[in-house]
Amino acid sequence: MELICPAGTPAAYREAVEAGADAVYCGFRDETNARNFPGLNFTRDELREAVAHAHSRGVQTYVALNTFMRAGSEDTWYRATDDAVAAGADAVILADMALMDYVADRYPEQRLHVSVQASASNVDAVSLLVESFGAKRLVLPRVLTVAEIANIARQVDCELEVFAFGGLCVMAEGRCSLSSYVTGKSPNMQGVCSPASHVRYREDGPDMVSELGGFTINRFGEGEPAGYPTLCKGRFHIADDDGYAFEDPVSLDVMEHLDALRAAGVTALKIEGRQRGKAYVAQVVSSLRAALLAPKDERPQKLAHLHRLSEGQRTTSGAYDKKWR
C-alpha cells in the first residue's frame, strides 16, 4: 500500500520525502484547500520546486483543492487548478463536483482524486464520481468499518485511500457546520476549522481554558493532556454531567488493522496533519513506513511512541473498529 503524507511547508515536504513517503499532499496559500492556516502552505513557485524535488526522488505530489467554490469567486479555484496542473501535480484532490467537472473537461489526462471532503461513503456515490468525472481514486470518509470498506472496494472501479493516522474529525466531513456556527468560517468553504483568529487560551488558576469565538469550550486541569480548540472536542454541561458530547480529543491510529485494510483492497494509507510541524511529519512518516515493512508482531513496537504526538496524547481506531452500533 502507498503511504500518502502531509506537508504544510516546503521544509515538511522535504522531511516527508526523506522519511519514505510514496506521495506528499499539499495546498496553496489560500482558501482553495482545507488547511488554509496562517503561515502555512505553498506559493506557486514553492509547489513547482517541491514537485521537481519529489520527482527526482520518485515521489508523487498531490495538490489538495478540496474546499467548495464560493459563488461568484469560482475563478480562484479554477486558477489554482490550472496552476497545480502546470506545476506538474501527479493528482489533484477535489471535493466540489463543479471543479471535478472543470478538470475532467479541461484536463482529461490529469489524475483526479476525490477528497474526503466530498463525503462519498457508499458504492453509488463513488461510482457516480468515477463515471461522471473519471476519478481514479477516492479518499473515504472516516465513518466506515473495515468490512464496509471491503464491501465498497469490491464494487467500485477506482482506487481507495483511507486515513490511517492523525487528526480525527466529527465524521460529517464536508458537511460539518460546527466551526461556522461559532466563527462564521468552516473547513468546507474557507478552509479553516476553528480559525486561529477566533481562538484564545487563558489560565485560570492551574487550569487552561480554551475559548472559540468568545465561547468557553474546554477547561483542562493541571497536567491534563490538551486537544485542539474545536467545538467538536469541546466539553459540555449536559444534564448533570460535564463531558465530551461529540468526541474526545484523540487521534486516529488504524495501523493495527493494516492487514485487514490491505485484504480489503485499500490502495493507499493517508496520514493527516498538514498543519503539523516538520518534526511530526518526519517521525510519523518514518514510523509508518517502518511498520509497513515490518512483520505484524513487530509493528506495535515501531508505532508505540506515536501516541505522544497525538491530540490528547491518545489514539483510537475510530469507526474502522466501530463498536457503538
Binding site: 503561515g39 483542562f220 510541524g277 518534526a279
Partner: peptide
C-alpha cells in the same frame, strides 16, 4: 523545528496566549 509545536502543546509543556493567528503564523 526539532519537536512538533502541537505535540508539545497537547502535553501541556507549553502555554500560549494572546493572538493565536499571529502565533500560528510565526510557528509555521
Amino acid at each position: 523545528g526539532r519537536i512538533d509545536g502541537d505535540a508539545v502543546f497537547f502535553s501541556r509543556s507549553l502555554a500560549v496566549s494572546g493572538d493565536m493567528e499571529a502565533m500560528l503564523a510565526l510557528r509555521n
